[in-house]
């Protein structure tokens, strides 16, 4: 039974995590960050971005589930948060579509060397 649900019936329950476990989770988060740095400095080719996003998602999940106690809470809390995340993701997709649709000709990296050379020539 979740903490809040039981609290409503007069009992006091808390997440079963101990101080030692919380510290261990913190160390795991720090290690994942270190791995991210290694991947960033020594990129494994095309895997770099998926790997970095994956590690970031793992950290996000650990903090939300164990530090924010979503794992132990009433499911409505998780649903509320997921609604926000899904809406945010939808918004991001919509904004990308809005700014990039029919504009593929202009979605190229600018030729900075030419711009810099041009500025130097004046």
């Amino acid at each position: 039974m979740s903490h809040e649900a039981s609290a409503g019936h007069g009992h006091e329950e808390h997440p079963p995590t101990t101080i030692r476990q919380y510290v261990l989770i913190g160390i795991i988060l720090a290690v994942i960050t270190a791995v991210e740095l290694v991947v960033s400095y020594y990129p494994p080719g095309s895997l770099e971005i998926p790997l970095l996003l994956g590690l970031s998602a793992v950290k996000f999940g650990i903090v939300a589930a164990l530090f924010m106690h979503l794992k132990f809470e009433h499911k409505i809390m998780t649903r509320m948060f997921l609604i926000g995340i899904v809406l945010a993701a939808s918004l991001m997709i919509a904004v990308f579509a809005l700014f990039t649709h029919d504009d593929t000709d202009n979605r190229v990296l600018p030729d900075r060397e030419a711009i810099t050379a041009g500025a130097g020539g004046h």
């Binding site: 926000g84 995340i85 809406l87 945010a88 918004l91």
Partner: peptide
Amino acid sequence: LASECLFFGT
């Protein structure tokens, strides 16, 4: 916090 997701998502 769910509403903040939209804010930072933007």
